[in-house]
Design a binder for these strands. Structure first.
Length: 468
RNA sequence: GGCCCGUUCGUCUAUCGGUUAGGACACCAGAUUUUCAUUCUGGUAAGAGGGGUUCGACUCCCCUACGGGCUACCA
């Protein structure tokens, strides 16, 4: 069997979209599952859309997510000569030609004819080396693929969708090399996948319509017998309504669209990432893995190793999946509880030595890491609230204070004893004193277990807060 | 407009011709909890529509509807 080699091939035009991360994940899972190789290829052939920092961002995002790269990054912009060599081969064999039409001319064609396509029917009436064989070849020009036959079926064998058939007359004479000498996606992609011996092309469904073009390119390069297998992934859809998930939708619904916070160098906009919003990478990976793929069992929680073990292309669904952030949040809750050590590590910054007990007190109450601070900051910051007290409450707190002063309780059960003793002394029910006690200590009427709270605060601080 | 892909609870999905159509999230109710949350138990909720094929269709085929993608010297 052929060795598995897959690639994740993003374009460095900005931050990595969450859907792109899922594509990377599926590639990675297949690579690891089959003992293959995961390659990162940067498709930076469009110099106008290049965004500085994007490549670093992509690498950092994959690293955060736990997706390891075995080879690369390979940058297409550094391989211009290679593509030139291959497009020359096509030219020589009559499968490509020079075209001189200007953008304006082509726009005019499209405007006057809504079904205009640069193809076998129209190419002879356009401005190119086929219609004007004697014309001098001089810049600027583009090189177009000469789709060889009309009206033959081109079948794309897709691992997810089965056989998808197109008619070759629907495939147009795509530009392979742009006037700046850079290849287009189609050329660079096919040449690189061949040269890098890619076994499986796993990419988004938006590429399905150009797959027949790619199949034809393999054929006319003479590489049909080593052509990679294709798997076109269903798209991630917006949570309400329809359409593919965009940054706008995410902003509107109030959740991140990027793995990491992204500072856009052009717009100066800052988009908060999943990491900074308090999501754990394990949760995001687990959530993403199950958006479009399922293990066929009822298991929901997967470590990366378990995903690798369970993964198969055959179990990827065909339909687009709506992005439900609530489910991601549920996964995050699960992983906060699961990854105790790691999370406690984050909490040390806020709670110091109390990080561990604070974690225990709040772990069932939080969704995000930042919730530990929001719900637990009273552990380190004294509440600034005023509590109106009646006579019996004043007596109770006086008694409680002296009890604590005398005994200096250390653990929750001891505090509980104090609380009840003071109630008996004051002739009140301890249950009725809990709310004012909580407010005094935490500044809030709800929160984690009161006795545990007192244990974390310590008897000195409890006294302090009652006295104030 | 043209081409291609898709369609099971609100959402993610299981089912690969015969099931009371299962699970998870969300939601609702009850129980536990000296608060709130957690936890536990239970519940509401689905095969787009129409034709076939078949003893039998969510499952196979066709049509329709709806949704999506592509249609650049962007990827």
């Amino acid at each position: 069997m052929q060795k598995v080699r897959v690639r994740f091939a993003p374009s460095p035009t900005g931050a990595l979209h969450i859907g792109g991360l899922r594509t990377a994940l599926y590639n990675y899972l297949l690579a690891r599952k089959s003992g293959g190789t995961m390659i990162l290829r940067i498709e930076d052939t469009d110099q106008n859309r290049f965004v500085p920092g994007a490549e670093e961002y992509i690498i950092e995002s994959l690293k955060w997510a736990g997706i390891q790269i075995d080879e690369g990054p390979v940058r297409q912009s550094e391989r211009k000569e290679i593509y030139k060599e291959y497009v020359d081969q096509l030219l020589k064999n009559g499968y490509a030609y020079y075209a001189f039409d200007t953008t304006e001319e082509l726009e005019a064609q499209r405007k006057s004819n809504s079904t205009f396509q640069y193809d076998a029917k129209s190419r002879m009436s356009l401005n190119n080396s086929l219609s004007r064989p004697d014309a001098e070849i001089k810049a600027p020009y583009v090189i177009r693929f000469k789709v060889p036959q009309e009206n033959v079926n081109v079948t794309v064998n897709d691992l997810i969708r089965g056989e998808v058939t197109f008619n070759s007359s629907q495939v147009d004479d795509k530009v392979l090399m742009k006037s700046d000498g850079m290849p287009t996606y189609h050329l660079a992609n096919v040449v690189d996948d061949h040269l890098m011996e890619i076994s499986h092309v796993i990419r988004g469904e938006e590429w399905l319509p150009s797959a027949p073009l790619h199949v034809l390119l393999y054929k006319y390069f003479g590489w049909a017998d080593t052509m990679p297998r294709f798997a076109h992934l269903p798209l991630l859809l917006k949570p309400d309504g329809n359409g593919k998930l965009s940054k706008r939708d995410a902003d509107k619904a109030g959740f991140p669209i990027f793995p990491l916070t992204w500072n856009d160098p052009n717009t100066k906009e800052v988009a908060i990432g999943y990491r900074e919003a308090g999501y754990l990478p394990e949760a995001i990976i687990n959530f993403l893995a199950l958006l479009g793929w399922n293990p066929g069992t009822e298991q929901e929680l997967f470590t990366m190793d378990e995903l690798i073990e369970a993964f198969s292309l055959e179990r990827i669904g065909k339909a687009g999946a709506k992005f439900d952030i609530l489910k991601a949040q549920w996964f995050n809750q699960q992983y906060i509880k699961k990854n105790k050590e790691e999370v406690v590590g984050y909490l040390v910054e806020w709670f110091g030595d109390n990080a561990k007990p604070v974690f225990e007190a709040l772990k069932d109450r939080v969704t995000f890491i930042k919730d530990f601070w929001e719900q637990g900051k009273f552990f380190v910051e004294r509440p600034g609230v005023k509590v109106e007290m009646n006579e019996s409450q004043t007596t109770y707190f006086a008694n409680l204070s002296s009890c604590i002063e005398k005994e200096h309780p250390k653990i929750a059960p001891e505090f509980k004893l104090m609380v009840e003793e003071a109630a008996t002394q004051s002739g009140v029910k301890s249950g009725q004193m809990m709310k004012p006690l909580r407010t005094l200590l935490t500044g809030s009427t709800s929160g984690p277990d009161l006795m545990a709270t007192m244990e974390i605060l310590g008897s000195n601080e409890v006294l302090n807060r009652i006295k104030r």
